[in-house]
Simulated assay, not measured.
Amino acid sequence: MSTVNQAGDRLKVALCTREYPPEVYGGAGVHVEYLAKELSKHVALTVHCQGADRPTAVAHQPWDRLENDNPALQTISTGLSMVAAMGDVDLVHSHTWYANMAGHLTSLLYGIPHVLTVHSLEPLRPWKAEQLGGGYALSSWCERDAVENAAAVIAVSNGMKADVLSTYPSVNPDKVRVIHNGIDAQQYAPDPDTEVLERCGVDPHRPNVVFVGRITRQKGVPVLLRAAAQLDPEVQLVLCAGQPDTPELALEVTDLVNNLRATRSGVIWIEGMLDRHEVIQLLSHATAFVCPSLYEPLGIVNLEAMACGTAVVASNVGGIPEVVADGETGLLVQPDEPQALADALNTLARDPQRAEAMGYAGRQRAISEFDWTSIASQTATLYHEVANSAVKPVDG
């Protein structure tokens, strides 16, 4: 059923985000892509994003005069452009700090409710100071003001909700709603072909573990590379990893990869962006997908691996235990413990039948519990509740 406003029309919603296809580099961008597709069945939806012009969304760019300044300033200027363009909607829904301030200011300027989805929290990612410098203080300020003043906050996991309430104790727990990330299990499905493996140099006859993600402290790539030194010799490591946060982190990861390659074969680092088909095929043929994150509110990439029928070895942090059932769809280990990570990966590499059974169970779990149709319906229901409870300012 469609969500309607007080006039009986379909509720007009502006979804504001940094990432939107074709410019998607992280889990939040994937979330917005699939959520928007399903939400458009419930509300009159317009997506406002950042980056190059595209036919599927209203794109906004930073001010030219800030092109050589701190990235956080550029983001804030882009947000102001969004605010100017969102005056004709009933509700605004923002994703990540990159768009949260736009949602908050839109709410203040036009007197409409702001719903905010929390995919992570800036105070829990202190390593971002390496990337943004003083801009990290600005990103933290943008997030804090938006979260504390939003009409409703969507947390992508129960772990994320707990983090919101402990980080921002002034937030009323009643306005924080848990709505998980989802997966399109028709698109993310086991792919029997192997041409991508062969092109990337992955031997389909040897066990392999796959990582997909950005090179950032949060994702624990150095932890994985230290663990890889303890993997059984026949196990291949496939790193689909790019976009390092800082030159220093890029150098650290490069040194670790080079040291590994000096001692073992089967270390494959794919630095360029892969398309979805390529990622799906690599995941489908992995003995295990590995997620060594130090901080992860949910980890949508774990759902992608599970939907491809692959066992997951992941850190027992944040919302990951709500996705990966330990001992059933994968194995959970404590974060930042390379030896424990290596032991879990070796366990599955030595027992391919167990890994296969976990992969099968993971796909069934992804299908039954993380469907985007249900997630969009829950989100539209929240819109309805917020819109009906909002009090419009009286002119005069």
Rank of each mutant, 00 (worst) to 15 (best):
L91M: 07
W63A: 14
V267D: 04
C308R: 10
H48I: 09
P190L: 08
P123M: 04
E304C: 09
E122P: 00
G103D: 01
L91S: 07
C291Y: 05
G134R: 12
Q243C: 06
P62I: 11
Q187V: 11
Q334D: 10
G272V: 04
Q243N: 12
V4H: 09
P393N: 12
W97M: 09
R264H: 05
Q281P: 05
A151Y: 00
T78F: 00
L231H: 10
Y136A: 14
V209I: 11
I268N: 02
E337P: 00
D69L: 06
G133H: 13
E38C: 09
G213P: 05
N316K: 06
L124K: 13
E143K: 06
E130C: 08
M160R: 04
D163I: 00
W141K: 12
V209P: 01
A262N: 05
T287L: 10
G396L: 13
P247W: 00
E369Y: 05
N258I: 00
T56G: 04
E148M: 10
S166F: 01
C308E: 13
G318W: 02
D53Q: 09
Y360L: 12
S40R: 15
H277W: 14
Y110W: 07
P62M: 07
C200D: 07
E38D: 15
R144K: 15
R217W: 12
M160E: 15
R276L: 11
P190Y: 02
G51W: 11
V391M: 14
P55K: 04
V156A: 05
P192D: 11
T216I: 10
A44C: 09
S139M: 13
Q131K: 13
G27V: 14
S157C: 05
G182W: 09
P222R: 03
S2I: 10
F289Y: 15
F370Y: 10
L382Y: 08
P393E: 11
F211W: 02
H42C: 08
E369S: 12
I154E: 01
R177E: 09
D371H: 13
T246P: 03
D88T: 12
P297G: 15
I183F: 08
A146H: 03
W269V: 14
A229W: 00
A59P: 06
T56E: 14
A85V: 02
V212A: 10
P126Q: 11
K161L: 11
Q230A: 15
A36H: 03
R217E: 14
Q131W: 03
D53N: 07
D275L: 15
M160V: 14
E385Q: 14
S139E: 10
E328V: 14
Q243A: 13
V301L: 00
W63K: 03
R10C: 09
H104F: 15
T3Y: 00
S2H: 06
S81L: 06
